[in-house]
Amino acid sequence: MSDRLDQVLREDARVALDDAGFAARVMRALPPALPRHSWLKPVLLLGATALGSLLAALFLPAGSIAVVQGFVDLAQHRVMTPAAMAALGMGLALAISSIVLAAETD
C-alpha cells in the first residue's frame, strides 16, 4: 500500500541528470594547483632554526658560552669543554628537527 509512493519516489530518484557541463564548472571552481616542492618546508624550517641559532650565538653577551668556540673545540677533538657541549646541544637540536621533519608524511 505505501509501496506505491515508495516506488514513485525510488523511480524519481533513479532518473539520471545529464552532466551538461557541470563537471567542467566544478573543475574550474577548484583552487589552483600549488607547486609541490616537498623539499621546501624542511629547508625553510631547518634554515630558520640554523639562522636563529647563529644569531643567538653571535649576540651572546660577553663571557657566556660561545657556541662558535664550541665548534672550534669540537674540531680540535675537545668534547668536554662547556662551549663544545653547547655546540653539541645545538647540533643535537638540529638533528632532532631533521628527524621529525623526515618522519612527517605530509
Binding site: 541528470l17 552532466d19 557541470f22 563537471a23 566544478v26
Partner: peptide, 8 residues
C-alpha cells in the same frame, strides 16, 4: 569522481 556522482 564528479562525473560519476553529480547526478545523484
Amino acid at each position: 569522481l564528479v562525473r560519476r556522482h553529480q547526478s545523484k
